[in-house]
Nucleic acid binder design. Structure first.
Lengths: 136, 136
DNA sequence: GTAGATGCAAAGTATTTGCGACAAG
DNA sequence: CTTGTCGCAAATACTTTGCATCTAC
């Protein structure tokens, strides 16, 4: 069975080149939120000839096609993850850099309500929590 | 009476140079969230010899001193605003770029709760809503 | 066959830094 | 005085782009 991103490319009519297939595969198999450099490293192991320009072009294309989503957490580089049905936000451990994904329906609803209150329709949002582990 | 940022520099023991006073003044009087370029333009009107490097160095220093806060909204450049008692989040009009500040105590509390749930102490957070005006 | 994709290197942005001159406390 | 700051230009980090070549459909 094809991995999920390649599948989505077909559905969305995104042309599949060798390079895109590799990038799609790597992102599909990634459990984390790699930045372009990291993605480039992983991709290079499968095909050392892929250029970083192609990686940049591809993540941008995938993002515009609604296949990947881009995060700009604190500290510079953009990071990507596969976009799927289940929306979630992020809790970031500022010591270790570990990222925990979470969903909170109540917060989601309240956000809609805030937008509503000011006469806006919510089209997107960003919620990031930065924390330190409690000495448990 | 001195404007608020200059006051804070004194309280926090931040050395006040001519350039810093000007940057402090401009930020104190800004009602919006200027990026460094914009800030540099405003500052240059009061003293055309200030360099952009100084503006970068100063906003960084002010941020580290807890005087300014930095936002990285979608689309690149970092933007700054004065940090004061009243915390707030931002609702951004994706058409006009207008930024509305809001506070929602309930969301704040829920965020704490989420962090708690995963065993974390919340030290910072970022909540940005992106919306379009409803045809009112 | 043709429109679009790739690799490369060069160009863009945004931001930081080394260094000698200078100013604040 | 002495330490830290400034202006300048060069350096860095991340991302985009022009162009000739190549490839998916």
């Amino acid at each position: 069975m094809k991995h999920s991103i390649e599948q989505k490319c077909i559905e969305k009519g995104v042309k599949l080149t060798e390079q895109r297939k590799i990038i799609a595969k790597v992102m599909s198999e990634s459990e984390d939120h790699p930045d372009v450099d990291e993605l480039y490293k992983r991709v290079s192991k499968l095909d050392s000839k892929i250029s970083i320009a192609t990686v940049y072009r591809t993540v941008k294309l995938f993002e515009e096609s609604g296949i990947l989503t881009k995060h700009e957490f604190k500290g510079g580089k953009a990071r990507y993850e596969e976009l799927n049905e289940s929306h979630h936000d992020h809790l970031i451990d500022i010591k270790s850099g570990e990222i925990i994904e979470f969903v909170d329906e109540e917060i989601e609803k309240l956000q809609e309500k805030v937008a509503e209150k000011y006469g806006y329709k919510l089209v997107d949002h960003k919620l990031e929590l930065y924390g330190v582990k409690k000495n448990s």
